[in-house]
């Protein structure tokens, strides 16, 4: 099976007075529908790796393939398009737009793509929100939702554009234990149901244990 996401000897060095090596010789692949957790201590390079995979940053070494396509040196506009069409993001903080309702926030990746995409995907996104028990909160603004509800909207937003890979950066880090597990279970069940790959960054071993596979990062290197 062709991996959906493939990293080959990826490295990242931040230039400066003293160059900082954040990642070194990182290689792994994520298969379609696979739920992978990336675990490591603070400063181990988890977020750097997620930023590279999320095409928010570019590696200084190695290559990165997404959906069979080499995207290592993709230009900024192409990376934006790939993020929009192939990737879904869930962040530690929900980062919902306070001026928009829950439904509009969830629809935002489609709205970015265009009016036709938004109109075509509206029913699906509405159904996803109902599935995560937000059917009666569709027209509420983020300020009118609880932390758990906000993060559930963020999960639906990550799935709105029907991406192939979901990248989740400490999505439960800002939630209490009960909500954290609920959101993680939701993420897992939805992505399994929709056959999406997930790369979840966490420092919580109990959350990581829900993944199909766990990758450990230490000082910028994979140790698993």
């Amino acid at each position: 099976m062709i991996p959906l996401l493939e990293l080959c000897s990826v490295g990242k060095v931040y230039p400066g007075g003293v160059a900082t090596r954040a990642l070194e010789e990182v290689s792994f692949a994520v298969a379609p529908g696979e739920f992978v957790a990336l675990v490591g201590a603070s400063g181990s390079g988890k977020t750097t790796l997620l930023n590279l995979v999320g095409l928010l940053d570019t590696p200084t070494e190695g290559s990165l393939r997404l959906a069979g396509r080499d995207v290592t040196g993709a230009a900024e506009d192409l990376r934006a398009e790939l993020r929009r069409d192939l990737l879904g993001f869930v962040f530690q903080f929900h980062y919902l737009l306070p001026e928009f309702t829950a439904l509009e926030n969830a629809l935002m990746p489609l709205r970015i793509r265009g009016t036709a995409a938004e109109d075509a995907g509206r029913a699906r996104v509405r159904a996803l929100l109902e599935k995560v028990d937000l059917g009666d909160r569709l027209h509420h603004r983020p300020g009118q939702l609880s932390g758990g509800q906000q993060q559930r909207v963020a999960v639906v937003r990550a799935l709105a554009n029907d991406p192939q890979v979901i990248l989740a950066d400490e999505p439960t880090g800002n939630l209490d234990s009960r909500n954290a597990h609920a959101v993680c279970d939701l993420l897992r069940s939805l992505t399994k149901e929709l056959h999406k790959s997930v790369l979840l960054v966490t420092h919580d071993e109990t959350i990581a244990a829900k993944a199909d596979r766990i990758l450990h990062l230490r000082d910028g290197r994979l140790v698993t």
Binding site: G54, A80, L97, I112
Partner: peptide, 16 residues
């Protein structure tokens, strides 16, 4: 700036 960053992260182009 946070909203701008998140919009760009989920696919908005600089031109938009």
């Amino acid at each position: 700036i946070q909203e701008i960053g998140i919009l760009k992260a989920i696919g908005a182009k600089s031109r938009q």
